[in-house]
Design a protein around this nucleic acid. Sequence first.
DNA 1: GGAAATTTATACTCGATGGTACAAAAATCT
DNA 2: AGATTTTTGTACCATCGAGTATAAATTTCC
Lengths: 209, 209
Amino acid sequence: MVQKSCTEAGGRPRGRPRSFDPDTALDRAVEVFWRLGFEAADTDALASAMGLTKPSVYAAFGNKEQLYLKALQRYGQRGRAEITALLEAAPSMRAGINAVFNHMAERVSGQHGGSGCLLTCVAAQSAHSMLPVREILEAGIAARDKAFTEFLRSGIARGELPAGFPVERRASLMNDLLSGLALRARAGASLEELREIGASATEAILAGA
Amino acid sequence: MVQKSCTEAGGRPRGRPRSFDPDTALDRAVEVFWRLGFEAADTDALASAMGLTKPSVYAAFGNKEQLYLKALQRYGQRGRAEITALLEAAPSMRAGINAVFNHMAERVSGQHGGSGCLLTCVAAQSAHSMLPVREILEAGIAARDKAFTEFLRSGIARGELPAGFPVERRASLMNDLLSGLALRARAGASLEELREIGASATEAILAGA
DNA sequence: GGAAATTTATACTCGATGGTACAAAAATCT
DNA sequence: AGATTTTTGTACCATCGAGTATAAATTTCC
């Protein structure tokens, strides 16, 4: 044996090298699914938007469903990372929550990709027929609940929130208000309206603080 | 001329009479779209669920898209009527809001039709590619905003809420929390969890009252 | 340089699906 | 009763879209 000399770092994997970066291709796929949804996004359009041919897509991602799942996961991970970063950088509770709402208002307003949220407005539909989608969605919601809960808890620790502050409830409240934000955006709400929503959402989340 | 003798009440409309009730057939279509979404609901499945043949569906409703639009409208109207009834019958602000959340928790939990909300979880996706869907969704959101606003206003009039209570903001808050409720249901949340959400939502909406 | 391996591109297959033609059935009008 | 009108059901069509066969291209290994 001892035939492969390059499975480790450095050396290329043997045959003709890929002419594209899978992650940036996946980002393009995200945008298409975001706009059209799973079924309406046909594989020709996906491949073309990704800048490659159908066989390349199938070789790299398996099939349409797997591509969809990977797109959802990538979108979800990126969103969570952004939120975490915003919350960690926030100088106060109010600033952090406001930053998240403003950020999501932009992301959801249709400037960057489709309008609305890929998970809230698109994955939600397929959650019923594709079990893995439901799981991704469930996990995404739980992760946000957790992130917000921890953030609010840190507010108690910092003395910015009273000891008895209902962190879990307000965290889930915040999560649900973001869903509403996404839906309104998909229905055509302007960035201004979304910012307004964010402002009163912040008030409600911090009520009693 | 003067050929038609029955366009008015009473007399049947001339040819072979329909063997089905369009409204109950539409209700069946609602359930199918609710579960599967627009594209995944194929016309054979729709016709069969509606208890009739494809040509009958097309004769009665036009085509798949029109059937979908009518289903969305019917679903929306029914939902609004239910909410209005609950609010009008409520003895207090808290009771009314709680009733709406409990009602929606049930409706959305998957017992009656698909899980989640047909508008929030299904129409949202097609809102991007089918303009009329976006309009129906937008109108539905606005109608709920208005209903909740009027309800809260009546609370001020009754002296149950302080004069300066931010009715519009809380109304839109309530609306968005219902979207979140629907999404969680579609993601698999149990009826218990949904009720919990409803309880803390009620608190948040009435905060400061 | 040649063999092996892997990606790319063109062109194709084949099943599913939205929609319909056509004839039989069931009603009204005269 | 017969003409007319509309619905019903079967069977069909045409298109679209997911996935692939195949051969050329590009790389590493020996």
